[in-house]
Write a protein that binds this DNA or RNA. Structure first.
Lengths: 157, 157
DNA sequence: GTGGGTGCAAAGTGTTTGCAAGTGT
DNA sequence: ACACTTGCAAACACTTTGCACCCAC
């Protein structure tokens, strides 16, 4: 994701706040700068840590109160890979339909897009009479292939 | 799922316990009878409640200690739809690759299978160099169509 | 007999919330 | 000014765990 896209996403979110008559506080600014200052996935706890570096007055409560706004705006997606924490992805402004594979060994996440997959998912859902809100293909894998290539460091575990 | 299949699944699980030198206790028997006595999805709390009807000595701790064994055996799958509890599905013995759509309004879950989807998922994962462990397509939807047909009661919320 | 299993209640973990004080508009 | 926001710490909901007793094998 190019820096210009990230700045655009940030602007969109500030507009989103304005539309909802929500205030742009110093804490929210720090959080937003953090979120759209990277294309990395993050947890609530990581966001708190990073945002605190920009503004030490940011508290855990504010992070947890801001995350729903970020996801509601559609600019950040919440993902659940069966770990005990949720992972947030700030790359949805440009690629709203991408999917993820997570390596259960090293927690590495790889993003991918597939038009065929999206199309098939829509087809099935509509065929079953549902109005789709969100869909998430979650693939848990072990990157044994990557290990062979020397890319899986097996951090943790 | 036919009753004969459920009995087969139960037998498989008891074999699984034996192979691992784990004991078949009265409490585990009550839990297993419950799990494979239905084809309904359930939560940990529901399982506790149902199992207690068969054997009132079953405790929450034992349910939580048995669930990992059930999923490890491959006969029950753990699913996460972003609610604050996990949902367990005892129908994996016969249909290991089925997927789910959940209605965020009424919590209704519909199962479906799609060979094309499974095939495409495999293709993509393998292409990215991963050895797939599990894959779960999670679709959150609102069954507005079903409401029109009078099937969505919008329980709760 | 012994090593695994159990219930209980306390502890853990990620997240939410009540409250009084603070602040953007 | 007024309503929205904040930090703090207590509260929550689900799940895990230490311990002493119990029981399947």
């Amino acid at each position: 994701m190019a820096e210009s896209d990230r700045i655009a996403a940030k602007t969109k979110f500030l507009d989103f706040l304005e539309e909802k008559n929500l205030r742009i506080t110093a804490q929210r600014r720090a959080i937003v700068d953090t979120v759209f200052g990277t294309d990395q996935h993050f947890t609530a706890e990581q966001l708190l840590e990073w945002a605190k570096e920009k503004d030490s007055s940011v508290s855990r409560a504010t992070v947890y109160r801001t995350l729903p706004l970020l996801t509601e705006s559609g600019l950040v997606h919440e993902m659940d890979f069966g770990k005990d924490y949720k992972i947030y992805d700030p790359n949805y402004a440009d690629h709203p339909n991408h999917n993820h594979i997570i390596c259960d060994d090293c927690d590495k996440i790889v993003e991918f897009e597939s038009d065929r997959l999206d199309q098939l998912e829509d087809e099935i859902s509509t065929g079953l009479g549902f109005k789709v809100k969100t869909q998430q293909l979650r693939i848990n894998a072990s990157c044994e292939e990557m290990k062979r290539l020397g890319e899986c460091k097996n951090k943790g575990n």
